[in-house]
Structure formats: structure tokens, C-alpha cells
Amino acid sequence: MSLLELKGVEVQFSGFRALRGFDLSVAAGELRCLIGPNGAGKTTALDVICGKAQVNGGDIIFAGQNISHFEEHRIARLGIGRKFQVPSVFRELTVKENLHVAFCRRAGVFANLGISAAKANADELEKLAELVGLKESFRREAGILSHGQTQWLEIAMLVAQDAQLLLLDEPTAGMTAAETRKTAELCKQLKGRHTMLVVEHDMGFIKEIGDVISVMHQGRLLAQGTVAEIESDPEVRKAYLGSGGIRGA
């Protein structure tokens, strides 16, 4: 049974149709890659799932619930975590505090006033920091981290949030080859425990981590299959015409 299902989702930005009847189905535990030429609507697809963009038509079903018109925090509470393309962490807070904010077990104002909430599992958070190689920076402000470290911190925050479904928007953007490899490792570790939907341009990275790839074009699902299937698909070749096929994307 699929954990996430998008049925004919429409999104418009002042007349521009970013998604035109987009369908997608992701099974629990799967790691799905979402690719497509620029402007295909990949980021919008993630935005609409996590509530950042408004749905103008169609349905989004998560774990049997129609979440198309839920507020962002309610969607997050249901178990959907989002990593943004431009890494966004709380720069004035320490790594530990960042993870602590993400570690959302009780969301209420008054539930979080007590002392017990303040003493969240420090060990657990430290282990998470270790997982993404930020143990040394655990008590440092996030603002001083490098770009790659910030990306990893944000991924660690999603794990701390313990989201069932992780939406990752270009997790390797701006990373060196070594950092990209490390991120691929990280994704493989998270696979199985979390269902993941990854938007990515780096084909090497996709081959490394992905099973099934969904290709988007002009706000629609164009093709779906393994890397080999996608690479030989004539429709996909046409969509990428002029950019040298998906390898050059």
C-alpha cells in the first residue's frame, strides 16, 4: 500500500500552472528520486506535500488521510519532514539546540514549559550529531558551520523529528564529490526506516541511492522506472532535448 499518494494535483502561481494534474505514489519504506528539467515542478511538488504551496485541485493522501488543505504544522505532526533546497537551520542556535527544536514530541506551548521537556534526550541528540559528523560542533552555533555541514545538520534535524516521510530537496547541492558520497551513505542508512522522496540533479548520486525514479516534465509525471529504463525512454530523451539527456541535467 502506498504511504503517499498524489492524485491529479494542480498548483497555480498567479496564472502559471506549476503542477498540471500531477500523479505520484510512493510506498512505505521506499526511496524515490524525483528528477526533471528546470521548471518541471519538482520543488513545487515537495512544497505542495508539506503545505508550503496551496493545492488548487486534486488530492494528497498521506497514510490514508487527505492532507491537501492542512496547515504546515499539522502536516509535520503527521510525520512529514522537509529539507529545503537552501539549507535552513537556526543559525543563532547551537547544533544541539537545533536538534532539540526538531525533536518535536509535544508541540503545545504549555507542554513545553516544564522542566522535563527542556531535558530532552541529550545522549540521543549527540548520537544524531555523530551520525552526520557534527559531534565536535555539538555546542557551537549553527551559523559557523560550512555549507555541507549545514546540509547534514538539516538532515539530522529531520531524523530527530522522526518523520515517517522525508522530503529532501537537492541534498547534495553545492557539495564536493567527497561530501556527496558521504550524503549518499547517509541516505542509504536512513533508507528503510524512513520513506524518502528526493529531488536531485546529480545522476551519480541517484544511481548510488535510488531504486525507482520518477521523471517530471511541465508539471506532470512523464515516466517512472529504474535508471536503465529511464535512460532509454524516448519521451524522457525528448524532454531533455538540448541539454544532452538526463546525464547532462
Binding site: E72, H73, R82, E92, C104, L113, G114, I115, A117, Q161
Partner: peptide, 27 residues
């Protein structure tokens, strides 16, 4: 010093981001 205080500081830093962790920022 409570967790609520920490979330308040996170809101000061990046209000939108806090929403995607499941907190009702307005509250």
C-alpha cells in the same frame, strides 16, 4: 530556559522553518 523558550528563539531565527517541525508558530 524551557523548551518553549528554545522554540521562541527558533521562531526569532526562522519563523517558517519552525512550522515544518510541527509547531504552531502563532501560538
Amino acid at each position: 530556559r524551557s523548551k518553549t523558550g528554545l522554540i521562541m528563539q527558533a521562531i526569532r531565527d526562522d519563523e517558517t522553518r519552525v512550522r515544518y517541525f510541527g509547531y504552531d508558530v502563532a501560538r
